[in-house]
Amino acid sequence: MRVALAGNSRRPAARTAERIPWFDTMVLPSAGVLAIVVGYPVVYTLVLSAEDYNLIGTTPPRFVGGDNFAKLVHDPTFWQALGNTLVYTFGSVAIAALLGLALALLTERASGRAGRIVRALLLTPWAVPFVVVAFLFRYMYLQNGGAINALLLAAGVIDTPISWLNVASLALPAVMVTNVWAMTPFFFLLLAAALAGIPNEVIESARVDRARGWSLVVGIKLPFLRNALLVGCLLMIIANFNDFAKIWAMTQGGPGYATTTLVVYVYRQAFESFAIGYASAIGVVWLALLLVFAFAYLRALRVR
């Protein structure tokens, strides 16, 4: 029981006000380093986004205000990259989350050594570096000699080998499959842990109420997994927004701009066209977009 503050009858003179410092010295090393390597670049990006700055150009950086942003609005490639980013991110995350959920439910009762081994094996894709994943799938997607074409031909699904990564309409889905393969273990592990965390009494009392099979999953387990799923999705959405390695190593954004996401576009603008100012403007827009998710994420955390 706590005592509510009783009016103004206290004697303020007798009180030694507790001084809470603004900052703590122990945070300084981390804060200092991050201020330099993250804080400063973020601010610098904002500045650069308002400049016409070409890294190899002969003219010095020039302030152009909102010109870069105006250019952005009329840049069809930017819009395509934005669309690709959204499709790539939400598509892969949704599929990976569903697959991870299915795997978690499938292996829920697998106990003992066999269960542990199965679970560990299902996690293997996670331990493969992104760049390796990319090259591996690139190899498997090959039109001539690719394992995937060979399999599909043998199964009679297709008649002629397909050049997956070179057809504009197929390249993005192909990259997404790769991404799903690499990401599913994350959801699997997260949801398996959450499933294991459901109190036994809840499951048992549901059983007593004659819930079984599907109704047990939908009615009882899914609500318990909601938070884990939410946090996992938000984390992966953010991670996928920023994904560079897989796309770059597989297609470099091609064919055309078919797999160009915002990261790839920024990278190309900055380090192939050397248009630092314009690249920064794209970065700023995208930063704003990401912050929306970051806040959604923080809100979700606070609700928990």
Partner: peptide
């Protein structure tokens, strides 16, 4: 959560 690529250009200059 920051996209690394946003930091890329300023970090490069830094």
């Amino acid at each position: 959560m920051l996209p690394l690529v946003v930091l890329l250009a300023p970090l490069y200059l830094l």
